Computed example of a mutant assay.
Amino acid sequence: MDLFKKAKTIRLRSVKDKYMIGDDDEQSVSLDRDGSTEKAEWEVFPTGENYIRFKSCHGKYLMASNTPFLQGVKGKKIIQTELKPDLDGSVNWEPLRDGFQVRLKTHTGGFLRPLGGLPPWRNNVTHDNPHRTKAKEKVLWDIEIVEHLPSYRKTNSDSQLYCMIDPK
């Protein structure tokens, strides 16, 4: 969580040097080599001691859905969604640090995972629980801080007021 304490806006870069972007349809999420666009920037919102939320440039939150990515494939879709009171924690992400990188864990125990290979997998993002050693390395993300927090910030998330004080 310490990676995100001073970050207001970040970029998530996969091990294949592709950035997670919020697509223009304001619903899907994909990967792109160009991390310089606004679509690659995600605003960070702490939601408690161990969880954060990511908000796209479209004003939608990153969500781990229950919809299968493809029929017969283990991974499930990652989408952008409005923040609604009936969400079950699927917009909450638990960052687990691994050296200078992070794994982003869903409320169901899966991990945010970039996909590669041939279409339809290429440049997509899913969530699942990788069992193979090689696949576990693929769920690591580099965090690039785009904008730092001021030393004091108030955010209104879930109708509660959170204050963050930078301990210097």
Rank of each mutant, 00 (worst) to 15 (best):
D24F: 01
D25F: 04
E26Q: 14
E26C: 14
Q27S: 13
Q27C: 11
S28D: 13
S28H: 10
S28N: 15
S28K: 08
S30W: 01
L31G: 03
L31R: 01
L31M: 05
L31A: 06
L31K: 01
L31P: 03
D32E: 12
D32P: 00
D32K: 13
D32A: 14
R33W: 08
D34H: 06
D34K: 09
D34E: 12
D34Y: 05
G35W: 00
T37P: 02
E38T: 12
E38P: 02
E38I: 11
K39D: 13
A40R: 03
A40W: 00
E41T: 02
E41C: 13
E41V: 01
W42K: 10
W42D: 13
W42R: 11
E43I: 05
E43M: 11
E43F: 05
F45W: 09
T47Q: 07
T47W: 00
T47K: 04
E49R: 10
E49C: 02
E49K: 14
N50Y: 06
N50F: 06
N50R: 09
N50M: 08
Y51Q: 05
Y51W: 02
I52N: 10
R53A: 15
R53W: 01
F54R: 04
K55L: 12
K55R: 15
S56W: 09
S56F: 08
C57R: 03
G59V: 03
G59N: 00
G59K: 00
K60F: 03
Y61N: 04
L62F: 14
L62M: 09
L62A: 07
M63Q: 13
M63E: 12
M63L: 11
M63D: 02
A64F: 08
A64M: 04
A64V: 04
S65K: 01
S65Y: 01
N66S: 15
N66E: 14
N66F: 04
N66T: 13
T67L: 10
T67I: 15
T67G: 00
P68I: 12
P68H: 11
P68F: 09
F69Y: 15
L70Y: 07
L70N: 04
Q71P: 00
Q71E: 14
Q71M: 10
Q71T: 09
Q71A: 09
G72I: 05
V73K: 09
K74M: 12
K74P: 04
G75I: 03
G75T: 05
G75E: 03
G75C: 07
G75D: 02
K76S: 14
K76D: 11
K77E: 13
K77A: 07
